[in-house]
Amino acid sequence: MDYVKLGSSDINVSNICLGSMTWGKQNNQTDADQQIDYALAQGVNFIDTAEMYAVPPTPDTYGTTEAIIGDWIARHQNQRKDLTIATKIAGTGLPWVRNGGPITGEAVIQAVDQSLKRLQTDYIDLYQLHWPNRTSPHFGKQWPGQIRFTDVDPQHERNQMLEILHALDDCVKMGKIRHVGLSDETTWGITTYLELSKTHGLPKMVSIQNEFNLLSLKDWPYLIEQCVHQNVAYLPWSPLASGVLSGKYANGARPEGSRWSISNPRGLHRDTPQTHQAVECYVNIAKQANLTPAQLALAWCKQVDGVTSTIIGATSKQQLIEDIAAFDVVLDQETLDIIGQTIRQFPATF
């Protein structure tokens, strides 16, 4: 297992981060225990969750994943100090979470306390903003014409960011959180938070997690360049594009219990003809390399310059074993060249 600094923090994390959003919906406490125990045995020391999990988010599953992790922590107190636990505060759009309101200073204080209670821990190692208050070009909204940046009041956004940073600073000073980070942000968002932190002596964002995989490359090169030069850890989420890069959804298949079998069809913006054409190519490349399609996608993601730690998720221990093994794979130049040609053929499939 390789370990890297989490951006400008003092934390060393494994280059694999164990994602947990299926726990509480597709997976129960026993499943989660098995995944955590196996991951730790392989050297993984980084677990990511969020207050809104499990996914798909519902009022009934809100906070369930944190509670499952908290149950494990309560039974393994001696191992807590060796783990980096990351969680996230939800933003607008979920009526059952603070009435769907934006992230505010008050919301941060309230959400941190609730997460600590569910996680059954005294501190959170990395506390992240799950998505910006403003509409951002993520989740299929990156195409021209879908967002009007000129309609945004940047000073209003800066004022909100500053209020959030002051609340995060209060939590850091009280020992409730160690470091802070972003999720589903942009280069402007990163830059603005860093400027405000420097100007006002407030906590610096040490990381960002965005979707990044063979089918979704919008962060390369500009956002990742920003992360490298500003010492902000880049944490790809959904490196398998919600599982489609495993090949299991080929020809319209919806395996029972899989994420796409339980998701709202209207929310499956990754389900496009171009996606499946590209996946077919990657499946064939994986066969030539004697890898599973999932391992090919993960091994490729790991080797991208600027990637710090890749967030992986699994609904079975067998999937987790397969995924973790991918990080021992070193793709040869011939395979990388073929992948590069395929990326050029399918640069943006959804």
Rank of each mutant, 00 (worst) to 15 (best):
G105V: 09
E106D: 11
A107K: 01
V108W: 00
I109G: 03
I109M: 10
Q110K: 13
Q110E: 11
A111G: 12
A111Y: 11
A111D: 14
V112G: 02
V112Y: 01
D113T: 12
D113R: 14
D113Y: 05
Q114I: 08
Q114G: 08
Q114W: 01
S115M: 09
S115Y: 06
L116P: 04
L116T: 02
K117F: 05
K117E: 13
R118W: 00
R118Y: 01
L119Q: 05
L119P: 02
L119K: 05
L119M: 10
Q120G: 06
Q120S: 14
T121Y: 00
T121P: 04
T121L: 04
D122A: 15
Y123V: 15
Y123Q: 15
Y123G: 13
I124K: 00
I124F: 00
I124T: 02
I124L: 07
I124Q: 03
D125I: 12
D125F: 07
D125T: 09
D125N: 07
D125W: 05
L126H: 01
L126E: 02
L126G: 00
L126Q: 01
Y127K: 01
Y127V: 00
Y127A: 01
Y127E: 00
Q128K: 11
Q128W: 08
Q128P: 11
Q128Y: 07
L129Y: 14
H130Q: 14
H130F: 10
W131V: 03
W131F: 15
P132N: 15
N133K: 03
R134L: 05
R134P: 00
R134H: 01
R134K: 08
T135R: 14
T135H: 03
S136W: 02
P137L: 13
P137V: 13
P137E: 14
P137I: 14
P137A: 04
P137T: 08
P137K: 10
H138S: 14
F139I: 07
F139N: 07
F139V: 10
F139Y: 09
G140T: 13
G140D: 11
G140K: 13
G140N: 10
K141A: 10
K141P: 06
K141Y: 07
K141F: 07
K141D: 06
Q142W: 13
Q142T: 10
Q142R: 12
W143C: 06
P144K: 12
P144D: 11
G145P: 05
G145H: 05
Q146N: 07
Q146V: 09
R148F: 06
R148W: 04
F149L: 12
F149A: 11
F149Y: 11
F149D: 11
F149S: 12
T150E: 08
V152K: 03
V152S: 02
V152L: 07
D153V: 00
D153E: 02
P154C: 04
P154F: 05
P154Y: 06
P154E: 04
P154G: 05
P154Q: 06
